[in-house]
Amino acid sequence: MLRDVAAIGAAIVAVGASFGAVAVAAGLPVWAVIAMSLFVYAGGAQFMAVGLAAAGNPMAAVLAGLLLNARHLPFGLTLGDSLGRRLWQRLLGSHLMTDEATAFALARPAGEVRHRAFWLAGTLLFVAWNAGTVLGVLAGGVAGDPATLGLDAAFPAGLIALLLPTLRDPDTRRAALGGAALAVLTTPVLPAGLPVLLALAGPALLAVHRLRRPPAPPTAQVVEPENEAHAVRAGRQESSC
């Protein structure tokens, strides 16, 4: 586990360094670059914000960055008490919730093992991203382009490797493949962040489907028309959050 997180951590140091270098080159003061990595702590939104802010469009930088990060809400709902039972664990853990930390945690069985996986990945990747940023600020152009090292292929490959075991479940597989296809197809026409959120359409359809046909076990309750309308509404909310 530690070795796996370290592999992604090494890639994150390099991408963090590239962020530091790009942000300084775009004219951001050093304090702002470091504050972004510490307090925003979301790579995609940070790169996007630097680009848009440098282009003189700060409002767009905020909106685009937040649209990109809206996916963390369903991540938080799913992880829930994997962060810990105490309030401080939840408040601090929430800040460490990245795509990679979420994927590492959800790849482990729920309970103590997942809790430890989340905190190990969360802490290590936070340190990696911020150490990388500082290195990039110090090294400037020397930090190099992570694309030369092929690091842009490392992240999707790592995410898919972590996801593979959960894809054995047919419902999850259908929802994930459908969502991925929908996101890729809509990427050319929708603002960044929105295509990924559209992937929630799969699980939302599944929810409606399950409510229409309640499972056979004796505990299954008759679905009242009222309940069903509520579920459809909930599904819509889910797909728009």
Partner: peptide, 26 residues
């Protein structure tokens, strides 16, 4: 049913993220 669907939703989001990151730039 909703609790069972949350991991499915997270998997769909992560899959979409991986697919777009693998295939698209901008």
């Amino acid at each position: 049913w909703a609790r069972q669907l949350l991991p499915v939703a997270a998997a769909a989001l992560l899959a979409a993220l991986a697919a777009t990151a693998a295939l698209t730039e901008g």
